[in-house]
Design a binder for these strands. Sequence first.
DNA 1: CATGAGCGC
Length: 287
Amino acid sequence: MAAGKIRWGELEEDDGGDLDFLLPPRVVIGPDENGIKKTIEYRFDDDGNKVKVTTTTRVRKLARARLSKAAIERRSWGKFGDAAKEDAGSRLTMVSTEEILLERPRAPGSKADEPSASGDPLAMASKGGAVLMVCRTCGKKGDHWTSKCPYKDLAGPAETVDRPPTSDGPSALGASAKGSSYVPPRLRAGAPTDSGHDMRRRNDENSVRVTNLSEDTREPDLLELFRTFGPVSRVYVAVDQKTGSSRGFGFVNFVHREDAEKAISKLNGYGYDNLILRVEWATPRPN
DNA sequence: CATGAGCGC
């Protein structure tokens, strides 16, 4: 193989890895009472088009609570612990007073005080792709649905949500006195205090409109072009729903406003694919 | 020339 030549396998892997975060999350519906399960996911095809993939599968109906061999075996075990003192059958459920210590999520960069982080189910859940519930208002995963978002319909700063508890009884006071309770980033020392900047809104404000794109410019191409200025949170190319061809304009959202400014000043009037790009601030979309 | 898609438990 010629040295320096790009292998297709590598190319594809790179593209997919870069863009996965731009796609809507996978949604699994069901299975319903007929055992029909629907999976809706999104991916980029070979041409860089965003495609919606809906899979319908029938899952085997469970034959009424089938017990594994091991579970049947466990039924013959003698009772132990507190249950051994109870007379048989009087209680099916025991109430345990055993104290169970839950690990508190740590701020990135802070030291681990216990060596058991690898087995933490919370950490695993946040890493894996098993969270289907993503709030569209604040982007939080697995916590609440969009309709239940505490930031929904909130115009100004919300004292009840943002202020740390001050009168929640002795346990809360004790926890904060030890300095171990969680402090949200915007309340930490050194956090920006400008009140005009509203972080509750989805990060649509650093939105840049790109017009005069050639027909075959797709989202991956836009990302390649704009990512040099800083972290990009979203790229979008408007596509005609009927023909599937590009409508010649798109949007790029930056995490940082300064990067969006740089991109506008450097890329507006930039020749791309035989055309002169127009790059400017996007006016926020209504609705 | 031109201002985006999605909406569930």
